[in-house]
């Protein structure tokens, strides 16, 4: 079996977000770029599946739609253990565009399992995985918290509000994964970093695709008013304020 992990390259989660050019563009000066945390967990789970002898997973490929600035992120994925990286050379316009590019690649290069993080921590499209499933006419499963292969029999856990479901499906399929899919991302080893040098990072030209949406402006949330401080002995006063001032009780 072959696993494809979709990777997006996002600002580090501690980034303080700023904009430039009349608030029309994200200001990326001084920003540290990382693998989208959910995608990194998806890659970790893919690695675990490959290392487990109880299934036939033998190849892990990571794919990204974007410019050359993401190559460092892709090489990190190779250092962690992916066998191959593919970058579709395009400016990622929106989720439809990104998913369409990945689907085009999948048509030529089939995979059994496609993993995508629940959302990217930048534009929070949360749509790419489900769109790939639709482009390919594959089953797609969202809110996935575990993917298990028992001799290639696929069993998936999915979070539902207040509970969980255990599902079975057939390959090929797309799983949109969230926290829980793996415990923590892996740190690349020195050997892994050396090996990554020799692994392929293919750059593919993008296909022509319509762009359906466009970000035209950004704004920061309004500053909150000052916090009203209440004495720690006066719990009654807080209850009173929540009832009559904030009106939330």
């Amino acid at each position: 079996m072959k696993i494809l992990v979709c990777i997006s390259n996002v600002p580090d989660t501690t980034t303080k977000v700023k904009f430039k050019e009349g608030d029309s563009l994200f200001d990326d000066s001084g920003v540290q770029w990382i693998i989208n945390p959910w995608d990194e967990l998806a890659l970790t789970r893919a690695m675990e599946l490959k290392e487990d002898a109880g299934n036939s997973v033998n190849e892990i490929c990571v794919i990204h739609v974007g410019g050359a600035s993401a190559d460092a992120t892709l090489r990190k994925a190779l250092a962690i253990g992916a066998d191959k990286a593919v970058r579709i050379d395009a400016c990622p316009a929106d989720a439809y565009h990104v998913a369409g590019q990945i689907a085009e690649y999948l048509k030529e290069n089939p995979f059994d399992i496609i993993l995508s993080g629940i959302e990217s921590s930048d534009y929070n499209g949360s749509s790419v995985g489900a769109m790939i499933a639709e482009f390919m006419d594959y089953p797609g499963i969202s809110s996935v918290t575990s993917v298990n292969l028992d001799d290639d029999d696929i069993q998936i856990n999915r979070a539902i509000p207040g509970g969980k479901q255990v599902l079975k499906t057939e390959a090929p399929f797309v799983a949109v994964v969230q926290k829980g899919i793996a415990t923590e991302p892996r740190i690349p080893s020195m050997r892994g970093i050396m090996m990554a040098r020799k692994k392929p990072l293919e750059v593919k030209p993008a296909v022509e695709l319509e762009v359906l949406t466009e970000s035209i402006k950004f704004e920061l949330p309004q500053e909150k008013g000052a916090c009203k401080m209440i004495d720690s002995e006066s719990a009654e006063q807080l209850v009173e304020l929540l009832k009559n001032e904030a009106k939330v009780l």
């Binding site: 190559d71 460092a72 090489r75 990190k76 250092a79 740190i187 690349p188 080893s189 020195m190 970093i193 990554a196 040098r197």
Partner: peptide
């Protein structure tokens, strides 16, 4: 280099 930065981050 990209690799040196990767080692630092690791």
């Amino acid at each position: 280099t990209e690799e040196q930065l990767m080692i630092r981050d690791a």
